[in-house]
Amino acid sequence: MVDNRYATALVIGSVLSLLASVYLSVAVGTRHWYQYRSMPASNDVKNGSDLHALKGAFIEEDVSEKTYSEALFRLNGTIGLWWRCILVPEETQWYRHPEPKMVTDCQAFTLPQQFETKYKLPGNSSSEEDLLRTYLWRCRFLFPLVSLGLVFLGALIGVCACLCRSITPTLFVGFLHLLAGICSLATVCCFLAGIDLLHRASESADWMNYSLGWSLYLALVSSPLQMMAAALFIWAARSHRKNYTRMTAYRVA
């Protein structure tokens, strides 16, 4: 039999865990982790041709990091864990119109691009390999998947514990949620560190305007929610165990 206090803690922890999973899932699937604001392009044929060529290269599957990064910098791009997008004119010869209609063009990062090697000079495979950026890029892709996997595993263990009418496995569920919260926080840290290193290696860093997007804040909020759920699960399991031990000792005495 579970005390009402512990049952309440388990319910609140489950709700927090669900909210954290939803927030992290939405953050992973959206593209607004980082947003760039470009200066208005001048209305001349040469600049229009350059931007059109940049847009064409951006949508290619095997595009280099330097190419798509430059497109993000110059074309009001947004980037996420799985997506990169740019804001481009709908018309091909946009420079002939004073206010062309703008549309968003998005491309998903392929699996090879998620694990590609990064270099000191972005896009230049003849330069020295940048191990730090390489592993930050890979970790920011893997950590949210690990976090969601840990929460899913914790949910399965929690369901089994309910079926067995035992609160003991809840302690392990709490530790799983704690690891999930750490992975969610590590995702944000790896992403921001990787973007910062990319800006330092880029030649366009001086004139760029950029800001954090709402998707990143969702991922950031999911981490403390998971940790609060972990604290509630661990407290309920340990307190219930101590209380049960004391009651058993009292009955024996």
Rank of each mutant, 00 (worst) to 15 (best):
A193E: 07
N209G: 02
I182Q: 10
S215V: 00
G213T: 00
L192T: 11
W214G: 11
S184V: 02
I195V: 11
V188F: 02
A205T: 03
V188W: 02
S211C: 02
R200Y: 07
M208H: 03
I182G: 04
I182C: 13
S211I: 01
I195H: 10
C189A: 05
L185M: 11
S204M: 10
F191E: 14
A205R: 04
L192M: 05
N209A: 04
C189M: 14
A205Q: 07
G213Q: 02
L212W: 08
S202V: 15
E203P: 11
L198C: 11
W214Y: 01
D206I: 09
A201F: 12
L192I: 07
A201I: 07
N209R: 03
G181D: 10
L212C: 01
N209I: 00
G194T: 06
I182K: 11
L198I: 03
G213D: 00
C190P: 14
G213F: 00
C190N: 13
F191P: 06
W207A: 08
V188R: 01
L212K: 02
R200K: 12
H199L: 10
I182W: 08
C190Q: 06
A205W: 00
D206L: 06
S215L: 15
L185I: 15
M208P: 00
A186H: 11
G181A: 12
D206M: 10
G194W: 15
S215Y: 00
M208S: 02
I195F: 07
L212A: 01
Y210V: 05
T187S: 13
L179G: 12
S184M: 00
A201K: 02
H199W: 05
S204T: 12
I195Q: 13
G213E: 01
I195A: 10
T187H: 10
A201N: 05
A180F: 04
A186T: 12
L179D: 15
C189V: 10
I195P: 00
L178E: 13
C190F: 05
S204P: 00
G194F: 12
L192A: 08
F191M: 04
R200F: 15
S204Q: 09
L179W: 07
A193R: 15
S211L: 06
I182T: 15
A186V: 14
D196Y: 05
L185C: 06
I195T: 08
G181F: 09
R200Q: 09
F191K: 06
